[in-house]
Simulated scan of single mutants.
Amino acid sequence: MNTTAAQIPNHLVWAILATLFCCLPGGIVSIVYAAQVNGKIAAGDLAGARDSSDKAKKWAMWSAIAGVIVAVLYVVLVMAMGGLGALSNSGY
């Protein structure tokens, strides 16, 4: 196998982790692109494999970022609702 082809990562692990723990829709897109990398390398389409690899990485990264943002917003919302509940119950 060509040494250049071996240097194109498929980012499948990151895509799966992003799907499981962060953002399901973006993670699925990342898995699809990651799954295309090895097939394109086998077919000799190194430019296509590199493009799919870059897209898989981008989608996994953005899925992880979206998951963190949603988690932070959820915590802020729960804290705000808990604070409002404590304020409304303090009058009794």
Rank of each mutant, 00 (worst) to 15 (best):
P25M: 15
P25F: 15
G26H: 02
G26E: 09
G27E: 05
G27T: 15
G27F: 08
I28A: 05
I28G: 03
I28R: 03
I28S: 03
V29T: 06
V29K: 01
V29Y: 01
S30D: 10
S30K: 03
S30Q: 08
I31A: 01
V32W: 06
V32S: 05
V32A: 11
V32C: 05
Y33M: 12
A34Y: 09
A34P: 13
A34L: 12
A34N: 04
A35W: 08
A35V: 12
A35S: 12
A35M: 09
Q36K: 06
Q36A: 03
Q36G: 01
Q36F: 02
Q36I: 07
Q36W: 04
Q36N: 03
V37D: 02
V37G: 01
V37Y: 01
G39T: 14
G39N: 14
G39M: 09
G39H: 14
G39A: 03
G39Q: 15
K40E: 07
I41P: 01
A42L: 12
A43M: 08
A43T: 09
G44I: 07
G44N: 06
D45Q: 04
D45I: 02
D45Y: 01
L46G: 02
A47E: 11
A47I: 13
A49M: 11
R50A: 05
R50P: 00
D51W: 07
D51Y: 07
S52I: 04
S52M: 01
S52F: 07
S52G: 02
S52Q: 03
S53G: 10
D54N: 14
D54P: 00
D54E: 14
K55M: 11
K58Q: 13
W59F: 15
A60V: 11
A60C: 11
A60G: 06
A60K: 02
A60T: 09
A60S: 13
M61C: 08
M61T: 14
A64F: 13
I65V: 13
I65R: 04
I65N: 03
A66V: 08
G67W: 06
V68M: 13
I69N: 09
I69Q: 10
I69L: 15
V70H: 05
V70D: 08
V70C: 14
A71K: 07
A71M: 14
L73S: 13
Y74P: 00
Y74F: 14
V76E: 07
L77M: 11
L77K: 05
V78N: 04
V78H: 00
V78T: 05
V78R: 03
V78Y: 00
M79S: 07
M79W: 10
M79C: 10
M79E: 09
A80D: 09
A80G: 01
M81S: 06
M81C: 05
M81W: 01
G82K: 04
G82F: 00
G82Y: 00
G82V: 06
G82T: 12
G82A: 06
